[in-house]
Design a protein around this nucleic acid. Structure first.
Lengths: 205, 205, 205, 205
DNA sequence: TATGAATGAGAGTTCATTCAT
DNA sequence: AATGAATGAACTCTCATTCAT
């Protein structure tokens, strides 16, 4: 009864209607996972909220975990869209401070707008290996692009990768404060300035 | 299922034997939550591993969540013990670099030794408000103590709290790399040096 | 679910294409039922393997059970073809031993070649009344023909039907050993000889 | 989520009450499997009919299949009890016919009284390897004991095992007719006589 | 005729929690 | 105080069958 070693056929939607339905599942799941959490959302609820039957969910996805993976991919792709504009042009020492500012702003915005989603998915990435891998890939790609921009902008290349990793972490931390912490709003510019100076200091060396 | 507004009598253990039993529950749960995860550990298993009955667990704890809270408190208190030595003496500009190094070292050690616990509890702190509050309190207290040490060591006091918060975050990030990332081991000293310089730079201003 | 008393229109195929399609369903189901078992084969799989849609299956068959009935009929008709040559000519006391041998051989062959099908359908005949009836009819017809052959070959007619039934059972048993049992291959001729002697003894009286 | 490689603790009941409950599950399942069939009986029904909750079933049995195995063991042990008296004393050529008669009688009785159970479990033994193994063991043990009785009764020992196997099969067939077949009741003694003669003939050689 | 997406009841199983002893 | 058997709602996933196109 266990169907070991046998693969269940999962529909790969090609027609517009099928694609729309799969997106509907992802969008609904994204909303539910964000608001209630992955573990507290059941498949029946996903189906009901998406306006479909439980059965059909399983013709698009092998199991609940696969839905989660798609939801996280969807979330990450929305992050990619947000950050993309910051990753295309070369960075010069003169333009760096402004880049850092924009990074901080977008990072904070993104975390604020999707606060619950952000928390949920970052948490899941710590609990589930394959989710972690998705975030790792995203981070690696952003960092690689930043390295590239910096190289083209004639920044010192010694230990560049490590520097960028650390700076990326600093920006995440700083924007994290903006969002999660109960810091007085008036203090946020201070934090941003500190982060900016730190980043400029690290990369400029 | 949650009996909101209705209080169940939960024993507050005062006798040595009772206290020992409660500690046994916490220690066992800590081990199981670390290795299998909170959601994948059931109460029957906790009781069995602790050598007690399932029923008795519920005379010490209202529900599973309360056990988790105690486990996290236990984890945090172990963190406190680790970091305490770093938080007692004043910090001078001369001793700062060494403090940062020790912080990085202990932070990395702690994350490595309890890697699974660390991931699990950080994840849960993102998923559950009350767990989050516990970590927040811990962080606030560490940061407050650091501020104090720095004040006594005659560091510039302007925006000190924000500076320390950011530095704390930088150190967490840097030690995080040591542990989670697949960075080449040879690169770790580089990361540590960068973090040290950044912290010294921020606090020295 | 069974819509008792309500008739659904089921196509009775008359055009060549329709007949071919129905045969395709039966042949595919036969293969799947044999290898995976009836309960473990679902209609979607039958349709897919047969190269048709799931919907069309239900225009040829009222439900899954009806497919099974057709598959069993198909299996039985293949048995009929195998045994037919043994059932046409009169049997004399002299030719009886050779007939028994041929029976044993064909019976064993048939069980071996379709071992999985054999087991599956015999099992289902014990579980489902209507399948049982199909096998009963087949057996009755074989036995009737054997009686006829024996009558024409001047065997004693007293209790002939019972005798033949028993002999038929003996042959089934003996060939069953050849196939299912882990008897040493060297012992199989012994079993066949014993069966042969028993049959000759019974019928000759 | 799949708990691969982890064994679930299944209670091994030692106290009287626990044993009674496990027997209750087996007895209820035996009844339901016999009347409705294994595949058509669900665990909720077993629990309900046994007057217990669904959950507790799974603290006695790992899964539904394990219940079936116990039910079949229970059935086989009832067969053993029935046949035991026939397997203890030596058989002489003089006592053989009476032994065969008693065998036929008990075999027919057993199949009649538990007709549905018999069909169901024999069918399942064809569908499931591990059920098959249980029946094989039973059959082997009966046949071994019969061989022993015959040896002690000075029967010719050449090919004794094969002879006994075939005779055992003949008796099964003959009693099968009594039960399943729509033979006229008046014809049953004929069948029994034929079987008796055949067995005596085979073993006497 | 034919498709295959869609349905939804029902399956086996788990587990936080309770309660008779 | 302590046990661990018992509960039963809730879970994920399956599949015979239907139906809009």
């Amino acid at each position: 009864m266990k169907n070991i070693g046998e693969h269940k056929a999962v529909r790969v939607p090609k027609q517009a209607r099928s694609i729309a339905k799969k997106q509907k599942i992802v969008a609904t799941s994204y909303r539910l996972f964000s608001s209630k959490g992955y573990y507290r959302t059941n498949t029946a609820e996903i189906a009901k909220e998406a306006g479909i039957s439980t059965g059909i969910v399983y013709s698009y996805y092998q199991d609940k975990k696969q839905i989660l993976l798609d939801v996280v991919k969807y979330y990450i792709s929305s992050l990619e869209k947000r950050f993309e504009p910051l990753l295309v042009s070369p960075v010069t020492p003169r333009s760096l401070p402004s880049l850092v500012r924009r990074f901080l702003k977008i990072s904070a915005e993104s975390q604020t707008e999707n606060r619950e989603a952000h928390n949920e998915f970052v948490a899941l990435s710590l609990l589930e290996e394959d989710i972690h891998a998705l975030f790792d890939d995203f981070e690696d790609s952003v960092i690689a692009k930043l390295c590239d921009s910096l190289k083209r902008g004639a920044f010192p290349q010694e230990n560049l990768l490590e520097k960028v990793r650390l700076c990326y972490g600093i920006i995440e931390q700083a924007s994290h404060f903006s969002v999660q912490r109960k810091i007085a709003k008036s203090e946020l510019p201070v934090m941003d300035s500190l982060a900016e100076e730190a980043v400029v200091g690290i990369l400029g060396k």
